[in-house]
Design a protein around this nucleic acid. Structure first.
Lengths: 347, 347
DNA sequence: TTGTAGGCGTTATCAT
DNA sequence: ATGATAACGCCTACAA
């Protein structure tokens, strides 16, 4: 009773393995493995014994060992934009939560800089052996080629981008909201519009812009200008002062709320009243919009569920299914009308 | 020349291993391993041959296999708050970038919900076998006990929290800025203050609040109230209307810019002029503050480098060193004076 | 229903 | 300076 430490010989600093659980439970090591895999063919009594041992030892599986054997990592990589002005936090947490719910771990990698060393590490990370799939919240384009030049590729989903045969349905939600914004402003009596867009590389920005142009044309209205913005308040401010103020436009559709705040403040700074002279519509339902002066009309998008949806799309890919476009396309976007939109001045 | 496929037998869908690299280079598999480990004792010629083979096959190491053998994962976990109103994006990207630079991968895990399954997964993730260290941007408290009840623990750093013997120095930067804010307002002539704080569970919020109270007392000023906020614009709005408006206070120190925006708008909504009647100071240098009405006085904190610093602290722990407090404590916070602060009304 | 053998890709240890 | 062999912890296959 002194030579062999029996059940807990671990060198203090070492986690128990299935072997030690097995020994404590008086079974073989892969009976423990079966237990972990929730094999239904186990005798209830055995389950109990193993379960106790697991608990007593506070056993936790070694993920690396598992994935090496199963060739599945239960991990996805999420690629974040390098842009400092646009970081989709809610998207990230939504996607991460969905991933966790589905039993996946989430690696985040940034696209910042381009040090060779980092490129290499990221390249390694994105191998099939290291990650089951990739979810990107930033346009990828040729970056991908650089990161994983050849060989088998894991499934990739870029948020907001869809392949052709699902484009129509998938983008419908955003397009519909964009069209409704134009419609709302038109109903108020506006005829001349400006759109402050997001970067063209973002599918979502491009889509909104495209739909804006289509909607304006369809309704026989005038698009005075489309300003290329970068999601930032500064770009809105600039557009407000340099393009919109003094122009015949009376209605502005901004790519997001931060831009809209900039537009409004820019206009106010040169004495243009909002919404007296110009109406402004945002997109995101940033909390501040409720308290802004004037309170901002906007689109409430559930970024959390957008993130979840993006992950679901990836998950479908991982399961070998064709990813379905989000079904609840209807309820995804909700227009919120506040005081930043009103009828145009009666000339 | 037909039986053995020589150098690229991989089943189309399989990444090459060091064995295939070895075969192509005409060396043994752990000569390749040495190459990967940058072993300096290799003959230059051998290095060249292996290097070529690696490149030709686009070989990337299998991280799981490596970590299983080395018992190091080169991975850290970053824990994000469940709060939806406060998501430290910049902190995250700063920390992630620093981690990547140091050769570490980053897993993000949220603290959302409490489903047993998720707790289990997270618990597994946080094992030494799965992650080398943990960086948390949210208070952990007893959560930790729940997640990893026993056994060896990996090093943990909670952003903003420091152990006692470094507290003084580490917190100096924030405390100094907080004191300077009070000082600035006092210099303008203010005597009666309100602080709209962040959640007490956040070390940073608690520290600012504590220093606020100390600074006010030290200077013989009056703290009319300390309002418990939650980092949100709404909490600022509420504080502005319900506590500050109609009170004798003429100066407000808000926990962050979003709160400050709420305070200002709340005051304006009940006809209280800022800064005519009340001055408001923020914290964060949110871009919008530059364009706000009035432009917001605030503290510019480099969240990126704060995130980097947090990771460095963890890295020290990982290397077994005592973590040093940030050295550049001086330049970390920079007060920015804009129009939201002015002398109090002359009574 | 449970146990035994083998191997996943890598690095460590020992030879040579 | 390089090669052979074992081991990391787990799971899949097959045997009992």
């Amino acid at each position: 009773m002194s030579e062999q430490p029996a059940t807990q010989p671990r060198d203090a600093d070492k986690r128990p393995t299935i072997y030690e659980v097995a020994r404590l439970a008086g079974v073989s090591h892969q009976t423990v493995s079966r237990f972990l895999r929730k094999d239904p063919t186990m005798r209830p009594d055995t389950v109990r014994r193993v379960s106790h041992a697991v608990e007593k030892l506070d056993y936790r599986p070694n993920l690396a060992a598992r994935s090496m054997r199963t060739r599945r990592t239960n991990r996805i990589a999420v690629i974040l934009p390098e842009t400092t002005s646009f970081v989709p936090t809610r998207l990230l947490s939504g996607a991460a939560a969905a991933a966790h719910d589905a039993g996946y771990l989430v690696d985040v990698v940034g696209l910042e800089g381009d040090a060779a060393a980092r490129a290499e590490r990221i390249g390694a990370l994105l191998q099939p052996a290291n990650v089951d799939g990739i979810l990107s919240f930033t346009p990828l384009a040729e970056n991908l080629e650089r990161l994983a030049p050849s060989g088998p590729r894991v499934p990739i989903v870029v948020d907001g981008e869809y392949d052709d045969n699902m484009r129509a349905r998938a983008l419908l939600a955003d397009a519909k909201a964009a069209d409704e914004i134009v419609g709302h402003l038109a109903d108020l009596g506006h005829r001349t519009f400006v759109h402050v867009a997001g970067p063209k590389t973002f599918a979502s920005a491009l889509n909104r812009r495209t739909e804006y142009e289509a909607s304006v044309a369809r309704r026989g209205l005038v698009s005075h200008a489309v300003v290329e913005g970068d999601w930032s308040t500064g770009s809105g401010w600039k557009a407000g002062r340099e393009v919109i103020a003094g122009s015949p436009a009376t209605a502005v559709f901004a790519a997001n709320d931060r831009v809209a705040f900039g537009v409004i403040r820019g206009l106010q700074s040169v004495g243009v009243d909002v919404p007296g002279r110009v109406s402004v519509f945002g997109w995101d339902d940033d909390e501040l919009g409720r308290y802004f002066q004037p309170p901002l009309s906007t689109v409430r998008v559930n970024r959390e569920s957008q993130g979840r949806a993006a992950f679901q799309r990836l998950l479908s890919l991982l399961h070998g299914k064709q990813p379905a476009a989000p079904m609840d396309t209807a309820g995804l976007n909700q227009l919120i009308f506040r005081d930043s939109t009103a009828p145009p001045p009666t000339v």
